[in-house]
Design a protein around this nucleic acid. Structure first.
Lengths: 101, 101
DNA sequence: CGTATACATTACATTATTATAATATTCGAA
DNA sequence: TTCGAATATTATAATAATGTAATGTATACG
């Protein structure tokens, strides 16, 4: 049963590991760090992360499919934001552990 | 320069992503969760995680090479423990976020 | 309409990760 | 010294992730 699985240690480790894997890439992590500062367009992220448009767009699409981020369009720009509270919490925790001492 | 790199956002994201990657596997995460409860032998972990000896041993070797865990031998048993404080902190943070609501 | 800008998608070669099986080592007890 | 339990290592086939290039789509504006 799904619920039982999620409540078992293995089940929680499986779903948590999936999320960790989604963050476990320098560019994806960078993107999410920038998004904690508020929504950004693809070209914002392109400049901020100095990565290719294609790579950024692909990772955003993937994270959107995983419901980690959401987007809205305004004219010719698409604004992305973090939509999963657990992702925000996790980024916050990472910041405390790795950027604060 | 190494220090500058670690202090840049990209540098911190790179090293943090490496650690996340190391945790981003159901079995490795399970192993580390069990180790937060104190040191365990390989066969303890084999039972606790219901995984093969080979898989457990390989992951432990890899995490040891990454200085995430350490081991000591007592007679015929090898006891593993978490040796990296950041790993402990991270597991603690994950527990709060994913196992506490 | 046609063009430029912003973004998305597809395709693919390269590299990394995984699971599994087989074999090796280490150490204590008989 | 031989045996078995505990752990480590090696090899490898299968799968997944990555970076890059090329192409596609949408929207505003002249």
């Amino acid at each position: 049963m799904r619920t039982q699985n999620v409540n078992s240690l293995l089940g929680r480790c499986e779903s948590t590991a999936l999320l960790l894997k989604a963050l476990a890439h320098p560019l994806r992590l960078q993107i999410l760090c920038h998004l904690t500062g508020g929504e950004k367009t693809v070209s914002d992220l392109e400049r901020l992360c100095s990565a290719s448009q294609s790579a950024i767009s692909q990772f955003l699409a993937r994270m959107k499919a995983d419901d980690m981020v959401a987007s809205r369009r305004d004219d010719r720009f698409v604004y992305y934001r973090i939509s999963d509270p657990q992702v925000s919490q996790l980024i916050g925790a990472l910041h405390k552990i790795f950027c604060h001492d």
